[in-house]
Design a protein around this nucleic acid. Structure first.
Length: 677
RNA sequence: GCGCCCGUAGCUCAACUGGAUAGAGCGUCGGCCUCCGGAGCCGAAGGUUGCAGGUUCGAGCCCUGCCGGGCGCACCA
């Protein structure tokens, strides 16, 4: 609601500026004054105009205020501070608009043209998922939810590197440490990914023990790449079984995918050959004939002095037109700037393959995967996987995206920049601009948590890096288990009568809410110090706080009904009220502030998309819940003991609006709302 | 050496991308259940925004130089 209003007011402001000064305002944005008493919306347009108009900002603001005061929906316009233009809205009209839109708290905006792909999770299929992987998946999944709410058509892909060294390492473990056959591996009971977690850690020691052990790695890797042998078959078994484990772990958190894209299919369908040809034809890459990189095909990585390479200024085949003199600058050899895509032995690097994959995502590879159904879920959701065998004619179309969001840790920034540069070097400017790296920082363990897990911590008590290679870290499943157990214990003390099945279900919902909020509350470029105590907290700025706000609000309605007050009758009464009169006074001011805050959800979601930052929505959700708790807690605003039916109706309107808005926000964050807590 | 991220209350983090009195949670201290659910609410203490300059009506945010921490810059994946 606030977005529509803002855009109407922005138009009015543009008109006012035109009338008064004959100037066109650029982008008009509104801020929110620090104190509600100062106004509902603020514009700093006057201060921006001060320079060009050579006038005092206050004078300009006064001229604008005079015109804005006459705009419908605005009751007052004031000049404040250094030249802010503060607008007071017609509360009755605004709240009524909000009330009318109640049926749909977060209306679906017009559909954004083009398809978007979000790739996330993408865990090496050789061990259990840990907290770092959770950050990736929760970040990606939440971003998908937000994009969809803002009208984007989004497909979710999970990349499976089933032919890499990490899988090979575990296979080495099975073959040369445990001497197991594939049948014996298949017979391993229990959580297979947890089993491999431990085995993988042992492989590191195995390699360190003797050089001939390390040689097994290359042996196994080659067998896997060649395919059609027992080792490759074992690798396939390991990878597919672990992928199933990962999907199960993620499903516990409400995370799922449309497509599982396999590295092995990229190899077997020769995506790189195609990309290589395209790059050569466009002269986007060149063969080095001397020096250190002799015999390699490289992609020029000219240091862009603006944001990202290929963001618009370079055109294809631009390599020959680099600024003259750069190569002649002392101590700046071209080789330092170029990225090898094909080694002198003719094999392709990881980054090279990634360019091919990215081109496919963008619909510019001119080659496609084949697809088969991986799983159809009870609710009808279908998970597909790539294959190099027969394709299923029922399969939907994947790829051809206008925007691709790769959720990958920040350590991969350089290779991701190379991928973007590769796309740009082919002349695909728009596609390069649509290539987004949703980078996030790593997760480390706090010294206390590391100690609690039995790891050695240096005396100075620094943080401990999570390391799959060393088996160091917190497994995702173990964390969710711990959260569920704690929630269950909490429920048992609060509501001992509750039956077991319902308690367990609620415990699961609380665990998911707590974990998802914990992973989302920090900005993604910040290193997340994982502390078990904090992650297990259910009070304060947490998911359960948000859940509790909704549960309590809904509970009021149950109570009202039980006392003989029909909620729908009260809601109907509320619609006929003279809101303008009721919204004066102390309670009116509180309701108004709450309404204005709730109305911002769309705006906040849009900001999260623009900034590619889900934490913005998470924090907003907490702020709204907090504002509601503050209002609701006051006995004088009781619904059961209201001083008049009109007051009761007004409060029902507020609580109903809150439940709907807050539920919508929880949905954006993937935080489930329990029936009871 | 070059590039990126981070430095804000005792701790963990915000600050709507240059706006008004820098805000939350945790922790500490003090209040609130004859009053719709206390996983809650109200209040207090706690800040030279790493340091020094600069830009302008205005800087936690932009520029320059330092200091401190982390990560990249592979013919590894």
């Amino acid at each position: 609601m606030i977005l529509a209003l803002q855009s109407r007011l922005a138009d009015a402001l543009r008109t006012a500026a035109r009338d008064a000064f004959g100037v066109e305002l650029g982008a008009v944005g509104f801020q929110y004054p620090p104190d509600a008493a100062m106004g509902d919306l603020a514009s700093n347009a006057a201060m921006a105009l001060a320079r060009s108009q050579r006038k005092n900002p206050k004078e300009i603001a006064a001229a604008l205020a005079e015109r804005m005061a006459k705009v419908p929906g605005v009751t007052r316009a004031e000049v404040a501070g250094a030249g802010f233009l503060n607008l007071f809205l017609d509360r009755g009209a605004a709240v009524r608009t909000l009330a009318d839109g109640l049926q749909d708290p977060m209306p679906q905006p017009p559909r954004v043209p083009g398809h978007a792909i979000v790739e996330h999770t993408s865990i090496n299929p050789n061990k259990a998922a840990h907290v770092g992987h959770l950050r990736n998946a929760i970040l990606g999944d939440t971003f998908v939810r937000i994009l969809r709410a803002r009208g984007h058509d989004v497909g979710v892909q999970n990349y499976i590197d089933d032919t890499g060294v990490q899988v090979a390492d575990v296979v080495v473990g099975f073959l040369h440490i445990e001497n197991k056959s594939q049948a014996e591996v298949a017979a391993i009971p229990g959580k297979f990914d947890h089993y491999c977690w431990d085995l993988y850690a042992r492989v590191g020691d195995f390699y360190a023990a003797a050089p001939e052990n390390k040689a097994k790695q290359a042996e196994v890797l080659h067998a896997i790449e060649a395919g059609g042998n027992e080792i490759a078959s074992l690798a396939e078994h390991v990878a597919s079984r672990i992928v199933a484990c990962h999907l199960e772990t993620m499903a516990r958190l409400g995370i799922r995918y449309e497509l599982l894209a396999h590295e092995s299919d990229i190899l077997r369908l020769h995506f790189w050959n195609r990309a290589f040809a395209l790059l050569k034809d466009a002269e986007a890459i060149r063969l080095v004939t001397e020096g250190k990189q002799n015999g390699c095909w490289v992609l020029g990585m000219g240091k862009a002095d603006d944001d990202a390479p290929g963001s618009g200024r370079r055109s294809p085949g631009d390599e020959a037109q680099r600024p003259e003199g750069r190569d002649s600058l002392p101590a700046r050899a071209a080789v330092d700037e170029d990225k090898i895509l094909v080694r002198s032995n003719g094999t392709v690097t990881y980054t090279g393959k990634d360019i091919a994959y990215q081109l496919w995502k963008l619909g510019r590879l001119d080659r496609d995967f084949r697809y088969r159904l991986y799983r159809a879920e009870p609710d009808g959701h279908r998970v597909w996987q790539t294959t190099s065998g027969e394709t299923d004619p029922q399969a939907p179309r994947f790829g051809n995206a206008r925007d691709v969001y790769n959720v990958i840790d920040v350590g991969q920034s350089y290779p991701q920049r190379v991928v973007k540069a590769g796309v740009a070097a082919l002349g695909y400017e728009r596609e390069a601009a649509g290539t987004h790296h949703l980078a996030y920082e790593k997760v480390v363990l706090s010294p206390e948590t590391a100690r609690a897990l039995g790891y050695d911590v240096a005396e100075d008590g620094g943080v401990v890096k999570v390391s799959g290679r060393k088996g160091l870290g917190v497994k995702a499943d173990d964390l969710v288990d711990a959260l569920e157990k704690k929630a269950l214990a909490e429920i048992a003390t609060r509501d001992p009568e509750r039956d077991k099945a319902q308690s367990e279900r609620t415990a699961r919902e609380i665990a998911v809410g707590a974990l998802r909020y914990f992973m989302l509350r920090y900005g993604r470029t910040r290193i997340l110090t994982f502390d078990l105590e904090e992650a297990l907290a259910f009070t304060g700025e947490t998911g359960p706080y948000i859940q509790n706000a909704i549960v309590r609000a809904r509970n009021i309605f149950t109570k009202l009904e039980a006392e003989g007050h029909a909620v729908d009758v009260l809601l109907a009464r509320a619609r006929a009220l003279d809101l303008g009169a009721l919204l004066d006074g102390e309670e009116g001011a509180e309701i108004w502030a709450l309404a204005l805050l709730m109305a911002r959800s769309e705006e906040v979601a849009e900001a999260a998309v623009a900034a590619e930052e889900p934490s913005i929505v998470a924090r907003h959700a907490f702020t709204v819940a907090q504002a509601f708790h503050g209002y609701y807690q006051k006995p004088k605003y009781s619904l059961l003991h209201a001083e008049s039916e009109d007051r009761r109706a007004l409060r029902v309107l507020v609580v109903d609006a809150f439940v709907r808005q807050m539920s919508a926000l929880a949905g954006l964050l993937g935080i489930p709302v329990p029936e009871r807590m």
